[in-house]
């Protein structure tokens, strides 16, 4: 008669030492967690609560519970969808252009042997410059009164007003955004490029692969994780575009992004109820964008962090 003994699961031995380690670890991260949640989770919950009221700061005593009516109003308003559309347009166009230019910059910086410090310093200046300053610089550059762009571009009339219609105003905003953030993109890609083994590229070269083949068959697949992380970070950043729009057009000519619409409702028009509803929608749409990018491009953050 054989007895089958259930495999006894060894009880995790929790030594004093590892318990002390856990306690110390949790103690050390506690301040960071509290701070991060104090300014994000708590206000977000408050926004969720406020969004169910018809509540304006101009009349704080007339606060009426309206349930989901603010959300219905926002979601049925064409303005909401128009700003969401233009935000997605900003995101897709700027990230695509930045990816191409940033990759070209990274290739050059990877190969450069002289004047590394000078190149590194120049590339960090747009990264470090205040976005508002970048917005002003480009707004004045595109201005027909005091700028130089119209004079330099051969096919543009000297008195062309870039901020007079949606298309050109959006383009001007995108130029400022792309100028400022391409360096960041190129530095992330440079780090990815440095992880591609030189031996592999050399081996492909010996086997007779052309430059294009080496790029598309060896380099790009091997830095996939870095590219995906750069795209994810920049896309979410671009989706929140606000500063450049505020400075360059103040939302005129339908250049308004979803962030700008939310800001205008809450801070300028004191509609805290409606503004909170828009805040929640903005938060949810960022989640959707993040989720879509992670799923669509199968971004593996653990792999990118070299943990896998």
């Amino acid at each position: 008669m054989s007895t089958v003994t259930a495999p006894v699961k060894p009880k995790a031995v929790v030594s004093d030492r590892s318990r002390a380690e856990t306690r110390l670890g949790q103690k050390l991260v506690a301040p960071a967690i509290v701070l991060m949640l104090l300014v994000t989770a708590f206000p977000m919950l408050r926004a969720l609560y406020l969004s169910t009221f018809d509540y304006a700061l101009t009349a704080p005593d007339e606060r009426d519970f309206v349930g989901v009516r603010n959300y219905l109003t926002a979601l049925t308003d064409p303005l909401f969808w128009q700003t969401t559309g233009i935000t997605v347009l900003y995101m897709v166009v700027t990230v695509a252009i930045e990816l191409v230019i940033g990759f070209a910059f990274a290739l050059v910086m990877h190969r450069v042997v002289f004047a590394r410090g000078v190149i590194r310093t120049s590339i960090l200046i747009p990264y470090g410059i205040i976005t508002v300053v970048s917005g002003f610089a480009w707004q004045f550059a595109f201005s027909f009164q005091n700028g130089f762009v119209n004079g330099w571009l051969p096919f543009v009339a000297d008195d062309f007003n870039w901020f007079g219609q949606t298309g050109s105003a959006v383009a001007a905003i995108m130029v400022s955004e792309i100028w400022k953030t391409t360096p960041f993109m190129s530095l992330l890609l440079l780090a990815g490029l440095a992880q591609v083994s030189e031996d592999m590229i050399e081996a492909a070269k010996v086997d007779g692969a052309t430059w294009t083949q080496r790029l598309t068959k060896v380099i790009l697949p091997n830095m996939r994780a870095a590219i995906m992380v750069a795209v994810l970070f920049r896309a979410l950043d671009a989706y929140r575009i606000f500063d450049n729009i505020f400075v360059m057009t103040a939302g005129a000519q339908k250049t308004e992004s979803i962030s700008f619409l939310t800001y205008r409702q809450t801070i300028e028009q004191f509609q805290l109820g409606m503004g909170s509803a828009l805040s929640v929608l903005l938060f949810l749409s960022v989640l959707v964008v993040a989720f879509a990018i992670v799923k669509l491009f199968r971004v593996d953050l653990a792999q990118a962090r070299q943990e896998a």
Binding site: A32, I267, S276, L278
Partner: peptide
């Protein structure tokens, strides 16, 4: 901790200004 940090890095800052303004 890492997940919270990642989530906050991607947080839409503008969605906080209303409630923070109030608080």
């Amino acid at each position: 901790v890492l997940t919270i940090a990642l989530a906050i890095a991607m947080f839409p800052v503008v969605s906080l200004v209303g409630p923070l303004f109030d608080m």
